[in-house]
Amino acid sequence: MASIDTTPRKAADDSDIPNISIQVEFSGGLEMLFSSQRRHSLSLPATEQGTPITIASLINHLCNHTMKDTRKELFILDDHLRPGILVLINDADWELEGEEAYELQNGDNILFVSTLHGG
């Protein structure tokens, strides 16, 4: 499994690439890490260095740009999404969709749900 590169990337090389729009949702307590906002609409370049953008890149983007909380390790651990966080791609478990390698499609709805928080 390719690891998630957490170093911020410059936006300059993305300038001529068409964008795709996706909806990202956080629940189960994760929204607390993302300005307590459940839904985020994102526009991302459709490709990255010539290959279609994957969920791994999305997670990287969320961590570097969307997440204001400094506790990055609550979202990314050892270069991967923290175990215990479920990902649903258009309501389907990402384990059925290739996990981090899934290539994002325009209009996708990506839900991140924490199983780690208590009641």
Binding site: S27, G28, S114, H117, G118, G119
Partner: peptide, 10 residues
């Protein structure tokens, strides 16, 4: 999630 239950996480 699939039953759309109303729960609170904190």
């Amino acid at each position: 999630h699939h039953k759309k239950l109303d729960y609170f996480s904190t």
